[in-house]
Design a protein around this nucleic acid. Sequence first.
DNA 1: CTTTCCAATTAATAAAAATACAGTTTTTTC
DNA 2: GAAAAAACTGTATTTTTATTAATTGGAAAG
Lengths: 159, 159
Amino acid sequence: MKNKKVRLQLIVELIKNNCIGSQEELARLLAARGYVVTQATLSRDLKQLRTTKVATDMGNYMYIIPDSNDLQDTMLSQGMSAAPAGQHAGFVSIQFSGHFAVIKTRNGYASGLAYDIDMSKTPEILGTIAGADTVFAVLREDVTHEDAMELFSRFLPLP
Amino acid sequence: MKNKKVRLQLIVELIKNNCIGSQEELARLLAARGYVVTQATLSRDLKQLRTTKVATDMGNYMYIIPDSNDLQDTMLSQGMSAAPAGQHAGFVSIQFSGHFAVIKTRNGYASGLAYDIDMSKTPEILGTIAGADTVFAVLREDVTHEDAMELFSRFLPLP
DNA sequence: CTTTCCAATTAATAAAAATACAGTTTTTTC
DNA sequence: GAAAAAACTGTATTTTTATTAATTGGAAAG
């Protein structure tokens, strides 16, 4: 029970480097490396990793690791859960660079989110600019990334 | 039998604009719009469209249209339109300030460039926003200007 | 006008994936 | 350190998805 994290890591590696068409197949690869788990567990692991199965050019299916950004998010939330309070459904991800937050949304959702942030008059968030699927938010200089996450959790479904 | 193309188009729309958790659900939405098909057909349609099901933040699953690039290929072979991307001709200059890149283009070229940068999913480039002749790009904190030049050279005619 | 071919489709079924439930281990709290 | 809460997992089962085999409606060929 203690090596779930290692297993998840290994699953990511296996999926990246092989064409894996089913959870049974993945189970066999894992077993060959000493991690014996059932299909049920893998179903849960893959859900947690946000892994998906797509059609290949050759007409079969294979699992893929979706997208490095999304994946990071998923790995992060390994340590927590809950918080449905945040309401914006189009939310995809948030990252920071210097005094900036870059919030990715589904296409078309950015301006609505930016508007809500602006309207909240949060003094720590100096202003925003929105494109179609991206919001830039400028933070006050004394605001840490942790502070900012806290602030944004009012709008977004964050940990 | 002759309206498969229209149906595929509609499926794409439905998936983009709704949270659809299963093929049965999709079948109902299609039926409500006059397209009555069985789950078996949808399984094949979704395979052809390279659609995938991913876990949502809320713990359910939903279908998504994977990635515009990949999708274009699929759509093309069905006889639909697409647009490729190469090196950008409208490029004028690029400069850096902190974790920012400011790219100047000829008038009207900025949003197209920003789109291509976004679509490349380059993890070092957190996001972009475009005006008419300027693109702002936020870089990840560990990315140097030299790194960034290297990255942007994929899109721009740089030395 | 037939016959032949082929893509599209369905009904039925097999295969794969998700989950309810229960038992166990780990972590947290007091 | 015991009690309580949370996390993890397997078994059994349900739900969902993929595929097989057969059918249909054209379109093309003869």
